[in-house]
């Protein structure tokens, strides 16, 4: 299967806070193709986790959500609440930064996995155990027989994350939402988990929405990427072109500020200022107060969407509608 799997359109999330309405997502739009690894990147507080949770329907009660989430072109809002839960439960899986916290310390890995497998398929006895082993094997755990009887704290962080991925795969989802899945791991273990995610997408056609603050992780793993700033996608496109020819000043600034061998013993270019809070009114471009290239229009006119070839887009006043 190929083609568009997930489309997020104009996603807005407001929180009711004691200080007023806080706009956490201000119209997030992007699309993920079947079987691809798609990166959602940005600095802390820009709305990465919230985007993932909103797709999964896991928003806190003080949140107001607008916009749409579609799977295979089907707007989830058009489904009955029951059907919507089913579709999400079956087609989407999620893993988090801290697998140690997500796993239950008092049950063995086997018990926790079996519970999930049973939830999705009515297997019992030998079939249930076999399916559990298959999943552990698929996520590269060498001796499922031993792992099944282990408690989470017996496992290293990397192994725990593999178990989490295995559990997320139990429903045979089409999309895995991975929120900073390697941030707590060493680079060597990170490389293994990223290579596992790549394998899952290539061999099993599971699409991955990889949420991360690490541009290197995106470059190593993703085919396409969306850069999030203050609750909005400011640039989206193929990783190769976004990283080699970024158009948005924020993307440019982020990439420039990374220490790389070529910049050794030099001052790094920095982005001054800080990310605006959701309470601030931002009538124009949210990046304007920090942007070196800002034009007079940037402060109070929302920047237009500009498309470049192929499938590379940004939101910025610097370019005209033909992408120049």
């Amino acid at each position: 299967m190929s083609g568009e799997l997930l489309r997020v359109t104009g996603l807005e999330v407001d929180f009711e806070t004691p200080f007023g309405l806080s706009r956490a997502l201000r119209g997030v739009s992007f699309a993920v193709e079947s079987g691809e690894v798609f990166g959602l990147v940005g600095e802390s507080g820009c709305g990465k986790t919230l985007t993932g949770r909103t797709i999964l329907g896991l928003v806190p009660p003080n949140a107001h959500v607008r916009g749409s989430v579609s799977l295979h072109g089907r707007n989830l809002e058009e489904l009955s609440p029951k059907r919507r839960r089913e579709v999400r439960g079956r087609q989407l899986g999620m893993i988090f930064q801290n697998p140690g916290q997500a796993l239950n310390p008092v049950f063995t890995v086997g018990q926790q996995m079996a519970a999930i497998v049973r939830h999705h398929r009515s297997l019992r006895g030998r079939e249930l155990r076999a399916r559990t082993r298959t999943l552990l094997h698929e996520v590269g755990l060498p001796n499922p027989g031993e792992i099944i009887n282990a408690y989470p704290h017996h496992l290293s962080g990397g192994m725990q994350q593999r178990v989490m991925i295995g559990m997320a795969l139990a429903s045979e989802p089409e999309l895995l939402i991975a929120d900073e899945p390697t941030t707590a791991l060493d680079v060597t273990i990170q490389a293994q988990i990223l290579s596992l995610l790549t394998t899952l997408s290539e061999r099993h056609r599971v699409a991955v929405l990889l949420i991360t603050h690490d541009m290197g992780v995106v470059a190593a793993t993703c085919k396409r990427v969306a850069v999030l700033y203050a609750g909005r996608v400011v640039e989206e496109g193929p990783v190769t072109t976004v990283f080699s020819q970024p158009y948005h000043p924020y993307t440019r600034g982020l990439l420039a500020s990374l220490p790389e061998p070529e910049k050794r013993s030099q001052d790094l270019p920095v982005i001054l200022g800080s990310v605006p809070s959701g309470l601030e009114a931002l009538p124009g471009c949210a990046f304007a107060p920090r942007c070196d290239s800002a034009l007079p229009a940037c402060k109070d006119t929302a920047p237009p969407e500009v498309r470049f070839e192929p499938s590379h887009r940004t939101e910025c006043h610097l370019y005209d509608s033909e992408g120049r």
């Binding site: 290293s156 990397g158 192994m159 680079v187 060597t188 273990i189 990170q190 490389a191 293994q192 990223l194 290579s195 690490d214 541009m215 290197g216 992780v217 470059a219 190593a220 793993t221 990283f243 990439l255 990374l258 790389e260």
Partner: peptide
């Protein structure tokens, strides 16, 4: 260890091997 570091230029990477075990 150096091989495992994700860089902005994965095409420069010489091997895809990763350190086994923990």
């Amino acid at each position: 260890l150096l091989e495992a570091v994700p860089t902005l230029h994965p095409e420069r990477r010489t091997s895809q091997d990763t350190l086994p075990a923990t």
